[in-house]
Structure formats: C-alpha cells, structure tokens
C-alpha cells in the first residue's frame, strides 16, 4: 500500500492501467485500494503543483510567525481553526520554539497580504504577536525543484 501511495504522491495522474502491472496487482485491486485510501482520508486530495510565476501571475507569499495566548481546555486548536478557516491561509503548523503557529499566506499583492495580517490575523482574540516574512524566491517546493535544468545527458545507445 505504501508503494501505491508513493506512486500517487509522485504523480497522481498516472493511470491505473500503468500502476497495476508495476505493483503486480490487477486494475480492479488497485482501484479498490485507492477508493479505500480516499475513504479513510489517507489520501486527502489530488493537487497540481503549478509554477504560477511562469504562467504570469505574481502572487505574494508571506510566512508569518504567530504567538498565541493558549486557552483553557482547547489549547491552541481553537485559535488555529479560526486562522486556517480563511481562504488566504494556505498552511498552518503548530511549532516548537520561539513562536507558536507558522502561517503561510498567499495574496495578489503586498498590500493585500499586509492588510490581511493587520485587520484579520492580528486582531483575533488570543493572537499576541505576529512577525511577517515575505518570500522572495522559491527554489524547491514539495520535493520539486522549481527550475530544474537536469536532463538526460546519456548517449542514445550504449552497450
């Protein structure tokens, strides 16, 4: 099952007719496995990693360190939920160290992101401090090198 997940994680569009022989299973078995993994929420979704910059979009990404005042009973979870419900928020992690939440926000402009942090994020009850870092350049994302120049340099036929 791990091998199936690894294959899909690498390329979710790979057809079952290709996956089945690779795993030594029938197409039906693989389809059943995938359905079960989806149902169990082991597979959460099938996303596409897009180089938006290349497409012509100039989105702004900010990585924000957030300090919180933990609440009785629910700790950080309730505030984290209030934050991750916003569509602008792409990623939220609870962290060890000098801050509590790492929040990644995407917006159309610097202004938009700054506005979101000032009016939405920092005003949430329990948020005590925010520090924003704007991303300048992405080199690698989710295991994929953004501008990968490596190509097949082998000769066409060798013994």
């Amino acid at each position: 099952m791990r091998e199936l997940l690894e294959l899909l994680e690498h390329d979710a569009r790979r057809p079952v007719s290709e996956i089945a022989p690779m795993l030594g299973k029938s197409e039906y078995e693989v389809e059943q496995d995938i359905r079960r993994l989806e149902k169990d929420k082991v597979i959460l979704s099938y996303n596409t990693l897009i180089n938006w910059e290349k497409f012509g979009d100039n989105t702004v990404t900010a990585i924000i360190e957030v300090n919180l005042m933990p609440q009785r009973e629910v700790g950080f979870d309730a505030i984290a939920e209030r934050i991750y419900r916003f569509d602008e928020v792409r990623t939220v992690y609870l962290m060890s160290g000098s801050f509590d939440l790492l929040v990644i926000i995407e917006g159309k402009s610097l202004q938009e992101v700054a506005n979101f942090v000032a009016t939405r994020l920092s005003t949430i009850d329990g948020v005590t401090q925010t520090r924003s870092h704007f991303m300048l350049k992405a080199y690698k994302k989710d295991g994929i090198v953004i501008n990968d120049e490596e190509r097949d340099r082998r000769l066409v036929v060798t013994p």
Partner: peptide, 10 residues
C-alpha cells in the same frame, strides 16, 4: 527518439 538502447541508469 525514445531510447531503450541505453546500458546505463537514467
């Protein structure tokens, strides 16, 4: 050309 003629790892 797609080469299945190469005797080394890709």
């Amino acid at each position: 050309v797609i080469s299945l003629g190469v005797g080394e790892p890709d």
